[in-house]
Design a protein around this nucleic acid. Structure first.
Lengths: 235, 235
DNA sequence: TTCCGTTTATGAGTTTTTTATGAAACGCTT
DNA sequence: AAGCGTTTCATAAAAAACTCATAAACGGAA
Protein backbone atom coordinates (compact mmCIF):
# COMPACT_ATOMS: atom_id res chain seq x y z
CA UNK A 1 0.00 0.00 0.00
CA UNK A 2 1.11 3.53 -0.74
CA UNK A 3 2.06 5.43 2.33
CA UNK A 4 -0.48 7.96 3.50
CA UNK A 5 2.19 10.37 4.57
CA UNK A 6 2.53 13.71 2.86
CA UNK A 7 5.22 13.71 0.20
CA UNK A 8 7.85 16.43 0.15
CA UNK A 9 10.38 17.03 -2.59
CA UNK A 10 13.60 18.75 -1.48
CA UNK A 11 15.64 20.44 -4.22
CA UNK A 12 19.13 21.68 -3.33
CA UNK A 13 22.68 21.07 -4.53
CA UNK A 14 24.32 21.37 -1.11
CA UNK A 15 24.49 17.94 0.55
CA UNK A 16 24.70 19.58 3.96
CA UNK A 17 21.30 21.12 3.55
CA UNK A 18 19.57 18.19 1.95
CA UNK A 19 20.90 15.86 4.67
CA UNK A 20 19.54 18.01 7.45
CA UNK A 21 16.21 18.51 5.72
CA UNK A 22 15.77 14.86 4.89
CA UNK A 23 16.44 13.85 8.48
CA UNK A 24 14.19 16.43 10.07
CA UNK A 25 11.33 16.01 7.67
CA UNK A 26 11.46 12.23 7.80
CA UNK A 27 11.41 12.26 11.57
CA UNK A 28 8.20 14.28 11.35
CA UNK A 29 6.54 11.58 9.31
CA UNK A 30 6.91 13.04 5.86
CA UNK A 31 7.97 11.06 2.82
CA UNK A 32 11.02 12.81 1.46
CA UNK A 33 12.84 12.70 -1.85
CA UNK A 34 15.81 14.78 -2.84
CA UNK A 35 16.81 16.28 -6.19
CA UNK A 36 20.11 18.06 -6.71
CA UNK A 37 18.99 20.32 -9.53
CA UNK A 38 15.89 21.68 -11.19
CA UNK A 39 15.79 19.25 -14.09
CA UNK A 40 15.89 16.23 -11.83
CA UNK A 41 13.19 17.88 -9.73
CA UNK A 42 10.88 18.12 -12.72
CA UNK A 43 11.41 14.43 -13.46
CA UNK A 44 10.55 13.45 -9.91
CA UNK A 45 7.51 15.69 -10.00
CA UNK A 46 6.14 13.80 -12.93
CA UNK A 47 6.13 10.33 -11.51
CA UNK A 48 5.94 10.98 -7.78
CA UNK A 49 3.71 14.10 -7.61
CA UNK A 50 4.71 15.43 -4.20
CA UNK A 51 2.42 17.43 -1.94
CA UNK A 52 5.00 20.15 -1.38
CA UNK A 53 8.31 21.32 -2.83
CA UNK A 54 11.18 22.94 -0.93
CA UNK A 55 13.79 24.36 -3.27
CA UNK A 56 17.00 26.33 -3.18
CA UNK A 57 17.34 29.32 -5.46
CA UNK A 58 20.80 28.83 -6.95
CA UNK A 59 21.43 25.44 -8.50
CA UNK A 60 23.12 23.94 -11.53
CA UNK A 61 21.07 23.04 -14.63
CA UNK A 62 17.94 24.91 -13.64
CA UNK A 63 17.67 27.42 -10.81
CA UNK A 64 14.83 27.68 -8.35
CA UNK A 65 13.23 30.59 -10.13
CA UNK A 66 12.93 28.73 -13.39
CA UNK A 67 11.84 25.60 -11.55
CA UNK A 68 9.01 27.50 -9.88
CA UNK A 69 7.87 28.88 -13.22
CA UNK A 70 7.93 25.47 -14.87
CA UNK A 71 6.08 23.84 -12.01
CA UNK A 72 3.39 26.50 -12.14
CA UNK A 73 2.64 25.76 -15.77
CA UNK A 74 1.18 22.42 -14.83
CA UNK A 75 0.73 22.28 -11.08
CA UNK A 76 -0.44 24.16 -8.03
CA UNK A 77 1.80 22.32 -5.58
CA UNK A 78 2.97 24.57 -2.72
CA UNK A 79 6.55 25.76 -3.22
CA UNK A 80 8.82 27.01 -0.44
CA UNK A 81 11.99 28.73 -1.63
CA UNK A 82 15.05 28.51 0.57
CA UNK A 83 17.95 30.84 -0.13
CA UNK A 84 20.94 32.68 1.30
CA UNK A 85 19.94 35.74 -0.68
CA UNK A 86 18.06 38.17 1.50
CA UNK A 87 17.51 41.10 -0.85
CA UNK A 88 13.93 42.18 -1.22
CA UNK A 89 14.13 42.17 -5.02
CA UNK A 90 15.05 38.50 -5.04
CA UNK A 91 12.23 37.59 -2.71
CA UNK A 92 9.70 39.45 -4.83
CA UNK A 93 10.99 37.73 -7.94
CA UNK A 94 10.67 34.30 -6.41
CA UNK A 95 7.22 34.91 -5.00
CA UNK A 96 5.96 36.32 -8.29
CA UNK A 97 7.48 33.38 -10.14
CA UNK A 98 5.07 31.16 -8.28
CA UNK A 99 6.67 30.45 -4.91
CA UNK A 100 4.32 30.39 -1.93
CA UNK A 101 6.90 31.18 0.70
CA UNK A 102 10.49 32.40 0.93
CA UNK A 103 12.79 31.52 3.82
CA UNK A 104 16.25 33.02 4.20
CA UNK A 105 19.18 30.82 5.16
CA UNK A 106 20.25 30.26 7.81
CA UNK A 107 16.84 29.25 9.04
CA UNK A 108 15.43 27.64 12.14
CA UNK A 109 14.21 24.13 11.52
CA UNK A 110 11.20 24.64 13.77
CA UNK A 111 10.15 27.62 11.71
CA UNK A 112 10.58 25.75 8.46
CA UNK A 113 8.53 22.87 9.78
CA UNK A 114 5.81 25.27 10.85
CA UNK A 115 5.81 26.84 7.41
CA UNK A 116 5.58 23.41 5.84
CA UNK A 117 2.57 22.66 8.03
CA UNK A 118 0.99 26.01 7.15
CA UNK A 119 1.37 25.35 3.45
CA UNK A 120 0.15 21.78 3.62
CA UNK A 121 -2.85 22.87 5.64
CA UNK A 122 -4.22 24.79 2.66
CA UNK A 123 -4.34 21.68 0.51
CA UNK A 124 -7.75 20.14 0.12
CA UNK A 125 -7.66 17.39 2.73
CA UNK A 126 -6.81 13.95 1.49
CA UNK A 127 -7.35 14.94 -2.08
CA UNK A 128 -5.35 13.12 -4.67
CA UNK A 129 -2.50 15.14 -5.99
CA UNK A 130 -3.93 16.69 -9.06
CA UNK A 131 -4.00 14.64 -12.18
CA UNK A 132 -2.10 15.84 -15.18
CA UNK A 133 -5.13 15.30 -17.36
CA UNK A 134 -8.25 17.42 -17.54
CA UNK A 135 -11.09 15.68 -19.30
CA UNK A 136 -14.40 17.40 -19.54
CA UNK A 137 -17.06 17.58 -22.16
CA UNK A 138 -15.53 17.98 -25.58
CA UNK A 139 -12.13 18.76 -24.13
CA UNK A 140 -9.12 16.70 -23.24
CA UNK A 141 -6.16 18.63 -21.92
CA UNK A 142 -2.87 16.90 -21.18
CA UNK A 143 -0.97 19.13 -18.78
CA UNK A 144 2.26 17.18 -18.83
CA UNK A 145 2.49 17.03 -22.62
CA UNK A 146 0.79 20.42 -23.01
CA UNK A 147 -1.57 19.10 -25.65
CA UNK A 148 -5.21 19.92 -26.26
CA UNK A 149 -7.74 17.78 -28.06
CA UNK A 150 -11.15 19.25 -28.90
CA UNK A 151 -13.74 16.80 -30.15
CA UNK A 152 -11.03 14.41 -31.20
CA UNK A 153 -9.07 16.99 -33.11
CA UNK A 154 -5.68 18.00 -31.73
CA UNK A 155 -4.98 21.70 -31.71
CA UNK A 156 -1.70 23.54 -31.40
CA UNK A 157 -1.70 26.25 -28.77
CA UNK A 158 1.04 28.69 -27.86
CA UNK A 159 2.23 28.67 -24.22
CA UNK A 160 0.11 31.63 -23.12
CA UNK A 161 -2.93 30.33 -24.94
CA UNK A 162 -2.45 26.98 -23.26
CA UNK A 163 -2.08 28.51 -19.80
CA UNK A 164 -5.21 30.55 -20.33
CA UNK A 165 -7.23 27.58 -21.48
CA UNK A 166 -6.04 25.43 -18.59
CA UNK A 167 -6.93 28.06 -16.05
CA UNK A 168 -10.37 28.51 -17.55
CA UNK A 169 -10.94 24.78 -17.79
CA UNK A 170 -9.92 24.25 -14.18
CA UNK A 171 -12.74 26.56 -13.16
CA UNK A 172 -15.25 25.57 -15.80
CA UNK A 173 -18.69 27.06 -15.27
CA UNK A 174 -17.50 29.91 -13.10
CA UNK A 175 -17.10 33.43 -14.31
CA UNK A 176 -13.49 34.50 -14.00
CA UNK A 177 -13.00 38.24 -13.84
CA UNK A 178 -10.54 40.02 -16.07
CA UNK A 179 -8.49 40.84 -13.01
CA UNK A 180 -8.32 37.25 -11.84
CA UNK A 181 -7.36 35.93 -15.25
CA UNK A 182 -4.71 38.56 -15.79
CA UNK A 183 -3.30 37.90 -12.34
CA UNK A 184 -3.27 34.17 -12.94
CA UNK A 185 -1.73 34.13 -16.41
CA UNK A 186 0.37 37.27 -16.56
CA UNK A 187 1.06 37.33 -12.84
CA UNK A 188 2.13 40.06 -10.48
CA UNK A 189 1.37 43.63 -11.37
CA UNK A 190 -0.14 43.64 -14.84
CA UNK A 191 -3.78 43.28 -13.89
CA UNK A 192 -4.86 46.40 -15.76
CA UNK A 193 -4.09 45.29 -19.32
CA UNK A 194 -7.46 43.88 -20.28
CA UNK A 195 -6.37 44.11 -23.91
CA UNK A 196 -3.98 41.19 -23.49
CA UNK A 197 -6.89 39.11 -22.46
CA UNK A 198 -9.10 40.13 -25.36
CA UNK A 199 -6.43 39.38 -27.90
CA UNK A 200 -5.71 35.96 -26.47
CA UNK A 201 -9.33 35.03 -26.00
CA UNK A 202 -9.84 35.90 -29.63
CA UNK A 203 -6.95 33.72 -30.76
CA UNK A 204 -8.04 30.90 -28.51
CA UNK A 205 -11.54 31.03 -29.94
CA UNK A 206 -10.21 30.77 -33.46
CA UNK A 207 -8.49 27.58 -32.45
CA UNK A 208 -11.05 25.81 -30.31
CA UNK A 209 -14.46 27.12 -31.34
CA UNK A 210 -16.40 25.57 -34.21
CA UNK A 211 -17.76 29.04 -34.93
CA UNK A 212 -15.53 31.69 -33.33
CA UNK A 213 -17.95 34.53 -33.93
CA UNK A 214 -20.60 32.93 -31.76
CA UNK A 215 -18.63 31.22 -29.02
CA UNK A 216 -19.98 28.11 -27.43
CA UNK A 217 -17.21 27.20 -25.02
CA UNK A 218 -15.42 30.41 -24.15
CA UNK A 219 -18.27 32.71 -23.27
CA UNK A 220 -18.02 36.45 -22.64
CA UNK A 221 -19.62 37.73 -19.48
CA UNK A 222 -19.95 41.40 -20.43
CA UNK A 223 -18.29 43.90 -18.09
CA UNK A 224 -17.01 41.11 -15.87
CA UNK A 225 -14.87 38.49 -17.49
CA UNK A 226 -15.15 35.14 -19.19
CA UNK A 227 -16.70 31.79 -18.44
CA UNK A 228 -15.74 28.45 -19.82
CA UNK A 229 -18.34 25.82 -20.66
CA UNK A 230 -17.02 22.42 -21.57
CA UNK A 231 -19.98 21.36 -23.63
CA UNK A 232 -20.87 18.73 -21.08
CA UNK A 233 -24.46 17.67 -20.68
CA UNK A 234 -25.36 19.90 -17.75
CA UNK A 235 -27.24 18.81 -14.59
CA UNK B 1 -19.90 49.27 -3.98
CA UNK B 2 -19.53 45.72 -5.09
CA UNK B 3 -16.11 46.21 -6.56
CA UNK B 4 -14.24 43.32 -8.02
CA UNK B 5 -11.12 44.31 -6.16
CA UNK B 6 -9.73 41.95 -3.58
CA UNK B 7 -10.63 42.96 -0.06
CA UNK B 8 -7.91 43.15 2.58
CA UNK B 9 -8.47 43.65 6.29
CA UNK B 10 -5.57 45.27 8.15
CA UNK B 11 -5.48 44.74 11.91
CA UNK B 12 -3.00 46.77 13.94
CA UNK B 13 -3.14 49.24 16.81
CA UNK B 14 -0.27 51.42 15.60
CA UNK B 15 -1.63 54.20 13.40
CA UNK B 16 1.77 54.55 11.74
CA UNK B 17 1.60 51.03 10.39
CA UNK B 18 -2.04 51.06 9.38
CA UNK B 19 -1.59 54.33 7.57
CA UNK B 20 1.29 53.04 5.49
CA UNK B 21 -0.43 49.76 4.75
CA UNK B 22 -3.70 51.38 3.79
CA UNK B 23 -1.96 53.74 1.39
CA UNK B 24 0.22 51.14 -0.26
CA UNK B 25 -2.46 48.51 -0.57
CA UNK B 26 -5.06 50.96 -1.85
CA UNK B 27 -2.69 52.23 -4.50
CA UNK B 28 -2.33 48.66 -5.69
CA UNK B 29 -6.04 48.40 -6.28
CA UNK B 30 -7.05 46.54 -3.15
CA UNK B 31 -10.07 47.46 -1.06
CA UNK B 32 -8.74 48.09 2.43
CA UNK B 33 -10.36 48.30 5.83
CA UNK B 34 -8.61 48.78 9.13
CA UNK B 35 -9.36 47.43 12.59
CA UNK B 36 -7.43 48.50 15.67
CA UNK B 37 -7.95 45.35 17.68
CA UNK B 38 -8.96 41.74 17.32
CA UNK B 39 -12.55 42.14 18.42
CA UNK B 40 -13.26 44.83 15.87
CA UNK B 41 -11.55 42.66 13.28
CA UNK B 42 -13.96 39.80 13.95
CA UNK B 43 -16.90 42.15 13.49
CA UNK B 44 -15.62 43.40 10.17
CA UNK B 45 -14.97 39.83 9.07
CA UNK B 46 -18.61 39.02 9.58
CA UNK B 47 -20.19 41.59 7.37
CA UNK B 48 -17.40 42.35 4.92
CA UNK B 49 -15.75 38.95 4.44
CA UNK B 50 -12.31 40.05 3.24
CA UNK B 51 -10.17 37.97 0.91
CA UNK B 52 -7.08 38.32 3.09
CA UNK B 53 -6.18 39.47 6.61
CA UNK B 54 -2.96 41.17 7.66
CA UNK B 55 -2.63 41.36 11.44
CA UNK B 56 -0.21 42.48 14.09
CA UNK B 57 0.56 40.12 16.95
CA UNK B 58 0.30 42.37 19.99
CA UNK B 59 -2.91 44.31 20.27
CA UNK B 60 -5.42 45.39 22.92
CA UNK B 61 -8.62 43.41 23.46
CA UNK B 62 -7.60 40.39 21.43
CA UNK B 63 -4.10 39.68 20.18
CA UNK B 64 -3.18 38.34 16.77
CA UNK B 65 -2.70 34.80 17.98
CA UNK B 66 -6.18 34.57 19.41
CA UNK B 67 -7.59 36.35 16.36
CA UNK B 68 -6.02 33.76 14.07
CA UNK B 69 -7.46 30.91 16.13
CA UNK B 70 -10.93 32.42 16.16
CA UNK B 71 -10.85 33.11 12.44
CA UNK B 72 -9.81 29.54 11.72
CA UNK B 73 -12.85 28.16 13.48
CA UNK B 74 -15.06 29.48 10.71
CA UNK B 75 -12.94 30.63 7.80
CA UNK B 76 -10.01 29.72 5.60
CA UNK B 77 -9.16 33.30 4.71
CA UNK B 78 -5.39 33.73 4.28
CA UNK B 79 -3.76 35.37 7.29
CA UNK B 80 -0.43 37.19 7.22
CA UNK B 81 1.00 37.99 10.64
CA UNK B 82 3.14 41.07 10.98
CA UNK B 83 5.24 41.45 14.12
CA UNK B 84 8.32 42.97 15.68
CA UNK B 85 8.97 39.70 17.47
CA UNK B 86 11.54 37.65 15.61
CA UNK B 87 11.97 34.66 17.92
CA UNK B 88 11.42 31.34 16.27
CA UNK B 89 9.08 30.18 19.02
CA UNK B 90 6.73 33.05 18.33
CA UNK B 91 6.71 32.42 14.62
CA UNK B 92 5.93 28.75 15.12
CA UNK B 93 3.13 29.64 17.50
CA UNK B 94 1.56 32.04 15.04
CA UNK B 95 1.84 29.71 12.08
CA UNK B 96 0.39 26.84 14.06
CA UNK B 97 -2.43 29.05 15.30
CA UNK B 98 -3.56 29.31 11.71
CA UNK B 99 -1.45 32.04 10.12
CA UNK B 100 -0.33 31.40 6.58
CA UNK B 101 2.67 33.67 6.64
CA UNK B 102 4.77 35.57 9.16
CA UNK B 103 6.65 38.75 8.35
CA UNK B 104 8.98 40.43 10.80
CA UNK B 105 8.92 44.19 11.27
CA UNK B 106 10.51 46.22 9.89
CA UNK B 107 9.54 44.83 6.54
CA UNK B 108 9.91 45.88 2.92
CA UNK B 109 6.65 46.92 1.38
CA UNK B 110 7.51 45.26 -1.92
CA UNK B 111 8.03 41.97 -0.16
CA UNK B 112 4.78 42.28 1.73
CA UNK B 113 2.92 43.06 -1.48
CA UNK B 114 4.48 40.03 -3.14
CA UNK B 115 3.45 37.85 -0.21
CA UNK B 116 -0.07 39.24 -0.43
CA UNK B 117 -0.14 38.32 -4.12
CA UNK B 118 1.23 34.87 -3.38
CA UNK B 119 -1.43 34.22 -0.77
CA UNK B 120 -4.26 35.56 -2.88
CA UNK B 121 -3.12 33.45 -5.80
CA UNK B 122 -3.96 30.24 -3.99
CA UNK B 123 -7.53 31.28 -3.40
CA UNK B 124 -10.15 29.78 -5.60
CA UNK B 125 -11.13 32.75 -7.74
CA UNK B 126 -14.34 34.52 -6.89
CA UNK B 127 -16.28 34.17 -3.71
CA UNK B 128 -14.69 31.75 -1.34
CA UNK B 129 -16.15 32.46 2.05
CA UNK B 130 -19.76 33.02 1.14
CA UNK B 131 -21.89 30.38 -0.42
CA UNK B 132 -22.01 31.01 -4.12
CA UNK B 133 -25.63 30.05 -4.56
CA UNK B 134 -28.68 31.93 -3.34
CA UNK B 135 -31.79 29.86 -3.62
CA UNK B 136 -35.01 31.23 -2.29
CA UNK B 137 -38.58 31.09 -3.44
CA UNK B 138 -38.79 31.55 -7.17
CA UNK B 139 -35.20 32.72 -7.41
CA UNK B 140 -31.97 30.93 -8.03
CA UNK B 141 -28.91 33.14 -8.19
CA UNK B 142 -25.55 31.57 -8.96
CA UNK B 143 -22.92 34.05 -7.88
CA UNK B 144 -19.98 32.14 -9.32
CA UNK B 145 -21.55 31.73 -12.74
CA UNK B 146 -23.43 35.06 -12.49
CA UNK B 147 -26.63 33.46 -13.65
CA UNK B 148 -30.14 34.31 -12.52
CA UNK B 149 -33.07 32.00 -12.94
CA UNK B 150 -36.61 33.14 -12.06
CA UNK B 151 -39.23 30.44 -12.06
CA UNK B 152 -37.14 28.32 -14.34
CA UNK B 153 -36.47 31.08 -16.83
CA UNK B 154 -32.92 32.33 -17.16
CA UNK B 155 -32.52 36.07 -17.40
CA UNK B 156 -29.59 38.16 -18.52
CA UNK B 157 -28.72 40.98 -16.17
CA UNK B 158 -26.16 43.74 -16.58
CA UNK B 159 -23.53 44.07 -13.84
CA UNK B 160 -25.29 46.82 -11.91
CA UNK B 161 -28.62 45.05 -12.20
CA UNK B 162 -27.02 41.85 -11.00
CA UNK B 163 -25.28 43.53 -8.07
CA UNK B 164 -28.49 45.23 -7.08
CA UNK B 165 -30.50 42.02 -7.22
CA UNK B 166 -27.91 40.11 -5.23
CA UNK B 167 -27.80 42.75 -2.56
CA UNK B 168 -31.57 42.78 -2.31
CA UNK B 169 -31.81 39.01 -2.29
CA UNK B 170 -29.19 38.73 0.44
CA UNK B 171 -31.41 40.84 2.64
CA UNK B 172 -34.72 39.48 1.46
CA UNK B 173 -37.70 40.55 3.54
CA UNK B 174 -35.97 43.59 5.02
CA UNK B 175 -36.60 47.11 3.88
CA UNK B 176 -33.44 48.63 2.45
CA UNK B 177 -33.30 52.40 2.40
CA UNK B 178 -32.33 54.35 -0.68
CA UNK B 179 -29.20 55.47 1.09
CA UNK B 180 -28.14 51.95 1.96
CA UNK B 181 -28.73 50.62 -1.53
CA UNK B 182 -26.96 53.49 -3.19
CA UNK B 183 -24.06 53.12 -0.81
CA UNK B 184 -23.87 49.39 -1.42
CA UNK B 185 -24.03 49.42 -5.20
CA UNK B 186 -22.70 52.81 -6.24
CA UNK B 187 -20.37 53.45 -3.35
CA UNK B 188 -20.04 56.11 -0.69
CA UNK B 189 -20.11 59.23 -2.83
CA UNK B 190 -23.40 59.03 -4.62
CA UNK B 191 -25.91 58.36 -1.87
CA UNK B 192 -28.04 61.28 -3.00
CA UNK B 193 -28.80 60.15 -6.54
CA UNK B 194 -32.03 58.35 -5.86
CA UNK B 195 -32.76 58.55 -9.58
CA UNK B 196 -30.12 55.93 -10.33
CA UNK B 197 -31.98 53.59 -8.08
CA UNK B 198 -35.35 54.26 -9.65
CA UNK B 199 -34.06 53.68 -13.13
CA UNK B 200 -32.41 50.42 -12.24
CA UNK B 201 -35.25 49.14 -10.15
CA UNK B 202 -37.46 49.77 -13.15
CA UNK B 203 -35.18 47.85 -15.48
CA UNK B 204 -34.82 45.03 -13.01
CA UNK B 205 -38.57 44.75 -12.68
CA UNK B 206 -38.95 44.49 -16.43
CA UNK B 207 -36.64 41.53 -16.36
CA UNK B 208 -37.76 39.60 -13.31
CA UNK B 209 -41.37 40.55 -12.66
CA UNK B 210 -44.25 38.72 -14.37
CA UNK B 211 -46.15 42.00 -14.32
CA UNK B 212 -43.73 44.91 -13.89
CA UNK B 213 -46.42 47.48 -13.27
CA UNK B 214 -47.61 45.71 -10.12
CA UNK B 215 -44.45 44.33 -8.61
CA UNK B 216 -44.59 41.16 -6.63
CA UNK B 217 -40.93 40.59 -5.79
CA UNK B 218 -39.31 43.99 -5.77
CA UNK B 219 -41.69 46.03 -3.67
CA UNK B 220 -41.56 49.78 -3.15
CA UNK B 221 -41.63 50.95 0.43
CA UNK B 222 -42.82 54.54 -0.04
CA UNK B 223 -40.58 57.27 1.38
CA UNK B 224 -38.10 54.70 2.61
CA UNK B 225 -36.70 52.33 0.05
CA UNK B 226 -37.31 48.91 -1.40
CA UNK B 227 -38.00 45.47 -0.07
CA UNK B 228 -37.39 42.17 -1.79
CA UNK B 229 -39.72 39.21 -1.44
CA UNK B 230 -38.63 35.92 -2.90
CA UNK B 231 -42.11 34.53 -3.40
CA UNK B 232 -41.55 31.88 -0.79
CA UNK B 233 -44.58 30.24 0.75
CA UNK B 234 -44.69 32.09 4.05
CA UNK B 235 -45.78 30.60 7.39
C1' DT C 1 13.04 33.74 -40.87
C1' DT C 2 9.18 32.54 -38.38
C1' DC C 3 6.72 32.33 -34.26
C1' DC C 4 5.04 34.51 -30.26
C1' DG C 5 3.75 38.13 -27.19
C1' DT C 6 2.83 43.00 -26.71
C1' DT C 7 0.65 47.36 -28.32
C1' DT C 8 -2.22 50.32 -30.83
C1' DA C 9 -6.28 51.66 -33.48
C1' DT C 10 -11.09 51.33 -34.85
C1' DG C 11 -16.08 50.50 -35.27
C1' DA C 12 -20.00 48.32 -33.51
C1' DG C 13 -22.66 47.42 -29.67
C1' DT C 14 -24.00 48.01 -24.59
C1' DT C 15 -24.40 50.01 -20.36
C1' DT C 16 -24.67 53.82 -17.34
C1' DT C 17 -25.80 58.43 -16.48
C1' DT C 18 -28.57 62.30 -17.13
C1' DT C 19 -32.73 64.70 -18.28
C1' DA C 20 -37.64 65.15 -18.90
C1' DT C 21 -42.51 64.09 -18.07
C1' DG C 22 -46.85 62.72 -15.94
C1' DA C 23 -49.18 60.25 -12.31
C1' DA C 24 -49.68 59.40 -7.55
C1' DA C 25 -49.04 60.42 -2.63
C1' DC C 26 -48.56 63.54 1.15
C1' DG C 27 -49.23 67.62 4.28
C1' DC C 28 -51.23 71.82 5.05
C1' DT C 29 -54.83 75.17 4.88
C1' DT C 30 -59.23 76.25 4.42
C1' DA D 1 -63.61 67.25 3.15
C1' DA D 2 -61.77 69.75 -0.64
C1' DG D 3 -58.10 72.34 -2.71
C1' DC D 4 -53.30 73.35 -3.47
C1' DG D 5 -48.39 73.07 -3.60
C1' DT D 6 -44.64 69.95 -2.90
C1' DT D 7 -42.33 65.68 -3.03
C1' DT D 8 -41.96 61.01 -4.58
C1' DC D 9 -42.34 57.39 -7.95
C1' DA D 10 -42.16 55.25 -12.53
C1' DT D 11 -41.02 55.43 -17.19
C1' DA D 12 -39.10 56.84 -21.52
C1' DA D 13 -35.58 58.56 -24.07
C1' DA D 14 -31.54 61.40 -24.72
C1' DA D 15 -26.49 61.74 -24.12
C1' DA D 16 -22.16 60.12 -22.44
C1' DA D 17 -19.02 56.57 -21.25
C1' DC D 18 -17.33 52.30 -21.70
C1' DT D 19 -16.61 47.43 -23.50
C1' DC D 20 -15.74 43.95 -26.97
C1' DA D 21 -13.74 41.90 -30.97
C1' DT D 22 -10.68 42.24 -34.58
C1' DA D 23 -6.97 43.50 -37.52
C1' DA D 24 -2.58 44.79 -37.82
C1' DA D 25 1.96 46.83 -36.63
C1' DC D 26 5.99 46.18 -33.82
C1' DG D 27 9.89 43.88 -31.53
C1' DG D 28 12.37 40.08 -29.46
C1' DA D 29 13.83 35.25 -29.41
C1' DA D 30 14.27 30.37 -31.03
Amino acid sequence: MLSEHRKILVVDDEPQITRVLRTSLSSHAYDVRVANDGLTALEIMKDWSPDLVITDLSMPNMDGLELARRLRTSSTVPIIVLSVRGEERTKVQALDAGADDYVTKPFGMQELLARVRANLRRLPPGEETESSLIESGDFRIDLAARKVVVKGRETHLTPKEFDLLVYLARHAGKVLTHRVLLGAIWGGQSTEQVEYLRVFVGQLRKKIEPNPSSPRYLVTEPWVGYRFETGETSP
